[in-house]
């Protein structure tokens, strides 16, 4: 009887180990980031969305306001606003053709946490797809030369002025204009 009970206890412990390892064994599977490392409550700082950095001031058309839910730039110099990069690590949520006035091409949306999302408008065909993991500074596409470009930040699904959510490096180019009104 004692041996019988011991055997049952062993079977139960084995089952428990198997079920536990079921979850742990999958850790890191799928592609790229584990969802829980992305979906937390944080509001990570956003860096520059162009690869070359520098001052955005010369290209500014409009800052964030009640009637303008994004920063708008005139991309007159292809050598400057050439390559679009992910402003922070995240997962590509959405891509498509832009529907903003005077902006042609595509847009890319990236979720950076359970609360924060950024969007870039005015790209050529993006080099990333929905569901891809991206790291900060990773190329996501190329801007059209001479087109307008927009940058938008959303917190809990609502557009906000990007200024409060940008890192020191991201703010470096914000001179001589009012980014939030």
């Amino acid at each position: 009887m004692k041996n019988f009970m011991n055997k049952k206890i062993k079977i139960m412990l084995l089952n428990l180990a198997l079920v536990s390892s079921l979850g742990m064994g999958l850790l890191g599977c799928g592609t790229g980031l584990d969802p829980l490392t992305v979906l937390d409550n944080s509001l990570p700082a956003l860096g520059s969305f162009v690869s070359t950095g520098g001052s955005y001031s010369s290209y500014l058309i409009g800052g964030f306001s009640a009637s303008n839910s994004y920063w708008l730039f005139q991309n007159s110099f292809a050598s400057y606003f050439s390559t679009a990069v992910a402003p922070a690590t995240g997962i590509v949520f959405d891509t498509g053709v832009v529907s903003l006035q005077n902006i042609s091409g595509y847009y890319v949306s990236i979720i950076h946490s359970g609360r924060l999302m950024s969007r870039l408008f005015g790209l050529q065909v993006p080099t990333v797809h929905v569901g891809d993991s991206v790291v900060v500074g990773q190329t996501i596409g190329t801007f059209y030369s001479g087109s307008q470009v927009a940058f938008q930040v959303l917190v809990d699904g609502v557009a906000v002025c990007p200024l409060s959510y940008m890192s020191a490096a991201g703010r470096a180019g914000l001179t001589n204009w009012t980014p939030c009104q």
Binding site: S20, M24, L27, C29, G32, D132
Partner: peptide
Amino acid sequence: TNLKVGGYF
């Protein structure tokens, strides 16, 4: 195109 999956204790 890619479903994100995680496994947890």
